[in-house]
Design a protein around this nucleic acid. Structure first.
Lengths: 222, 222
DNA sequence: GCAAATATAATAGTATTACTATCATATATG
DNA sequence: CATATATGATAGTAATACTATTATATTTGC
């Protein structure tokens, strides 16, 4: 995976003007990732981003209708990347249990090293997804956006891991629920560990969330 | 529980002026529940609430600093109610497995009938919690609010069910994670079933979320 | 029964957000 | 070199999330 420099393409419904088609577009994407990480999605505005990249906010609006559309774009980018990682980590692995284990690892651990060939900082992007991704589909406009295909990349990842589960136990009835419980639960628990430790079981070892969900899933599909 | 008409008291840190101390306060609480259900938390404003109850928004600000403080109050009210329900459902039940089962049922099913003795519509409130509760602690101010005790009621519920799990299996390492995975997962899956069915496993039976998590938890603690 | 305290109403005002619109200028393309 | 396209500079608007002020009720304490 590293240094492979894959190119991620995002479907045209997710932007007004393709940010991957100009330098300003690249600046918008890379700096928005930095800024959202810095001040959080709520405080993030196109005005502040414009000041950071020294362009008027009106220019940013040419690429994205609003900051929510930008977050949807970033999320889609992330899940497309995760799918590449899943494919890469599981090809040529014979045992489906082993493939599931590796997939769970990818879904439960934030990205730690950037491939450094793209204008997208994958480490920072992964952090954003862990803390902000809930806000992508918790809006009044979910249904409209869902029809537009905004969540396709996420759905594909869920489907892929669900298929893996069914390969191990074809009779298991709730593969999708199990996978989304894993993904969303991981994000949630990481947040709790940082802010509301009484709601989780924090230990010194960092991998405890990953461990918890790996065990949970294998017990569930048995 | 029904017709018991318990009185729920909320700690003074959660409001500027106690809404349970005046008629206007009661109107603010009951109508905010209706309005948030109608238009969603994002679109909800004190101005609109003021128009609904025919009072100026400045009067509402005397009770709550902002709409987030109001949501925190409502959430705290809900979890205090849930704790009463948990206690009520499990007293005099000898088997800890049976008590856990009943507790899971309470946590995974929305409230269906109001006790009708309070100015709080519990059915509507339960709906709000299922769809909006994430927004209560996903803010920049979590840490401050956590110190103020805004999430005490939720934590108490989690602790109570965690203790039940430890009663069944004292060696289980992640009781809190399991309980919050259950609670938050339930809310999430219900949302997915309504808006993003590809992320869940929808069937005709309504109880499938409750079934899924009940089985999951008992398998996990074995 | 009346003064004092308190609660609410009525109104106005401010900074920020989330945009939209217009026009000028720079750059690329054919 | 003319034209198209992208960006910059600037202005403006409606809504949101408040704060402040003053007036008018209502309660309460004596």
């Amino acid at each position: 995976m590293k240094n492979l420099n894959i190119h991620i393409e995002i479907s045209p419904e997710l932007y007004s003007k393709n940010p991957d088609s100009s330098e300003l577009g690249h600046k918008i994407i890379s700096n928005s990732i930095v800024l959202i990480n810095d001040i959080g999605y709520e405080a993030f505005t196109f005005k502040k981003l414009g000041q950071l990249i020294e362009s008027p906010e009106s220019s940013i609006y040419r690429y994205f209708e609003n900051k929510h559309a930008l977050l949807v774009y970033l999320t889609s980018w992330y899940w497309t990347l995760i799918e590449y990682r899943l494919v890469f980590a599981t090809t040529n692995v014979v045992s489906p249990e082993e493939r599931l284990k590796k997939s769970i690892a990818i879904l439960t651990q934030p990205i730690l090293a950037d491939n450094a060939f793209s204008y997208v900082d994958e480490v920072l992007l992964s952090k954003i997804i862990f803390t902000e991704s809930l806000k992508v589909y918790h809006t009044k406009s979910v249904d409209v956006e869902n029809k537009k295909g905004c969540f396709k990349a996420y759905k594909k990842v869920v489907q892929r891991v669900s298929n893996l589960i069914l390969e191990i136990n074809p009779k298991f009835k709730y593969p999708h629920m199990l996978v989304t419980t894993l993904i969303e639960g991981t994000h949630q628990q990481k947040y709790f560990a940082e802010h509301l430790p009484a709601l989780t079981d924090v230990t010194k070892e960092k991998a405890f969330i990953s461990d918890f969900y790996t065990t949970l899933i294998f017990k569930a599909i048995k």
